[in-house]
């Protein structure tokens, strides 16, 4: 009896893990029906650019979700790094390299600041990162008040380069999936689940909760800065509001990607698939002839449904515990 129940429960949580992949398959099938022949390797190559920016932010958001936080500042960091790169990036090769590294460092520092104020002053993550979002996007506006700027062509070429027929973005996505597998097995990857699932237990078990939290925000900042760099190369200009749409979308990617504090499950691949789904929805709507006006409506509905789904999983999980449902 107990065994059967266990198996049932396990298959239920497994189902949850496969949901993003199933949604992706359904979207691809629908697109294939409406526009036969459109999905091929070239299409993948073209789309990968749009996917990678969101996937990077989505992975960062996933990690932050897993420690029970939220990082809204990704929007500000993306805008800021985008504007910074579009305005000040030098032409020479060493200059570009150093500048890119500097931008990634800014992302890390932005994340460290988020983590610091959240841990030190015990601020609620979303309100704390809301303020840093405002600060970074304000800084972006200071650099560039309207869309513009000029990006060195070398930089654009480097990030849009094709190795054979495979684009850098596609390679990076593949690399992220592999890195994800390593990360999940690493000490930080495990510490993060333990902090999210039982903070007191993790502390008693010898995990440094403060350090873990700050590190996770740092990673999120780093990934947001990387996303900002890619966006700069793709659009070849800067926009002070470039990152704003990423806030909702990155949360959506993380949630649809199946990460859940209640079950302790997360994966980079899931977050990437979540990002791909969010990006494809627009394409899907075009393909099926839904008005573009409906895009944001459907995005909102899908986000809320996905969150409801994960909160149902949590409810299912908690039913066996004697919790007071306030």
């Amino acid at each position: 009896m107990g065994n059967q129940k266990n198996r049932l429960q396990r298959s239920f949580s497994n189902l949850n893990i496969w949901i993003p992949y199933m949604i992706l398959a359904i979207i691809l099938i629908i697109m294939g029906i409406y526009q036969p022949g459109v999905i091929n390797f070239n299409w993948l190559n073209r789309q990968a650019d749009a996917w990678v920016t969101l996937a990077l932010a989505g992975i960062g958001q996933t990690l932050v979700f897993m420690i029970g936080g939220t990082d809204l500042s990704v929007g500000g960091v993306i805008s800021f790094t985008n504007c910074l790169a579009a305005v000040y990036m030098p032409q020479s090769v060493p200059g570009i390299l150093a500048f890119s590294l500097g931008i990634l460092l800014i992302g890390v520092l932005a994340g460290a600041f988020n983590g610091f104020i959240i841990v030190k002053f015990r601020l609620q993550p979303f309100i704390a990162t809301l303020t840093t979002w405002a600060i970074w996007s304000g800084a972006a506006l200071c650099i560039l008040s309207v869309d513009g700027g000029k990006v060195p062509s070398l930089f654009t070429k480097a990030l849009l380069h094709k190795f054979g027929s495979v684009k850098v973005s596609l390679l990076l996505l593949a690399a992220l999936i592999v890195i994800g597998i390593f990360f999940k097995a690493s000490r930080l990857g495990i510490a993060l689940v333990s902090v999210g699932s039982n903070e007191k237990g993790a502390y008693f078990g010898g995990i440094s909760v403060t350090r873990t939290k700050i590190l996770v925000y740092m990673i999120s900042g780093l990934l947001a800065a990387a996303s900002g760099l890619f966006r700069t190369a793709q659009v070849a200009s800067g926009s002070p509001t470039a990152g704003d749409s990423f806030i909702l979308l990155s949360c959506a990617s993380a949630v649809i990607g199946g990460c859940s504090v209640a079950t302790g499950y997360y994966s980079f691949a899931g977050a990437i698939v979540g990002a791909v789904i969010m990006r494809l929805l627009t394409g899907l709507m075009v393909a099926t002839g839904v008005s573009s006006y409906m895009t944001s409506l459907l995005q909102g509905v899908i986000l809320i449904l996905a969150v409801c789904l994960s909160s149902f999983t949590a409810l299912f999980h908690n039913r066996k515990k004697m919790e007071v449902d306030v």
Partner: peptide, 14 residues
């Protein structure tokens, strides 16, 4: 002080 969402081995070497 075990972490319910981690495997037995992961908890052992937390």
């Amino acid at each position: 002080s075990l972490i319910p969402n981690l495997s037995v081995a992961d908890n052992l070497f937390l």
